[in-house]
Amino acid sequence: MSLIEKLPHLSDDEVMNLLANARRLQDQGDDKQRAAAAELLPALEDVANERRAARQQAIQAKRAAARRPKSVAA
């Protein structure tokens, strides 16, 4: 099983850590590390963006549920 196949099973923190490491290796790694980072970065960024969007939606839903309904004048 490749690392890309394991991404859905990783925690948010693990995904963010891998993304940070891949970005660092893309800039500072040797040729082999840069190639591996270039292969992983698109998948890591997609998963990170999906999870970020899901967290934002959960926050918005929680805020909406906590709001008081607007009172309607009779």
Rank of each mutant, 00 (worst) to 15 (best):
R52C: 08
A48D: 01
K32I: 03
A36K: 09
R23T: 04
I59R: 10
R68P: 12
P69A: 11
R68Q: 14
L7V: 03
R34T: 07
I59Q: 10
A22H: 10
R23H: 12
A65T: 09
K62D: 11
E45F: 01
L10R: 03
R34G: 09
L19D: 08
D46I: 12
L25E: 10
Q56C: 12
P69Y: 07
V15E: 02
H9D: 01
A35N: 03
A36P: 02
A43W: 11
M16Y: 14
L7I: 00
A48C: 06
A65P: 09
Q26H: 14
E39M: 05
E14P: 15
V15F: 04
S71G: 05
L19S: 06
V47R: 10
V72F: 15
A36W: 02
A64D: 14
V47C: 10
R24L: 13
P8M: 01
R63L: 13
A53W: 08
D13I: 03
E14R: 14
L40E: 06
V47K: 12
D12H: 06
D13F: 06
Q33F: 03
D46A: 01
L41C: 05
A53C: 06
K32S: 12
A43M: 00
S71N: 09
M1E: 07
D13C: 00
K70E: 08
L25H: 03
A37T: 09
Q33A: 09
A22S: 13
D27H: 13
L18C: 08
Q57L: 12
K70F: 10
K70G: 03
A64G: 05
L3M: 13
L44K: 06
R67H: 07
A36D: 10
R63W: 07
L41M: 03
P69Q: 13
P69N: 09
K70Q: 08
M1N: 02
A22D: 08
A43I: 00
A74I: 07
A74E: 12
S71M: 10
D30E: 13
P69K: 06
L3V: 14
H9F: 05
I59M: 06
A38L: 00
M1L: 08
V47S: 07
L10G: 02
P42T: 02
P42M: 00
Q57T: 10
A22E: 09
H9I: 01
R63M: 09
D46H: 11
N49G: 08
S2V: 00
V15D: 03
E50C: 01
Q56A: 10
A20Q: 15
K62N: 11
R67Y: 14
Q56H: 15
V15Q: 04
E14N: 13
P42D: 00
S11N: 00
Q60K: 12
D30S: 05
D27C: 04
N17W: 13
N21H: 15
Q56D: 08
D27Y: 14
S11M: 06
Q57W: 14
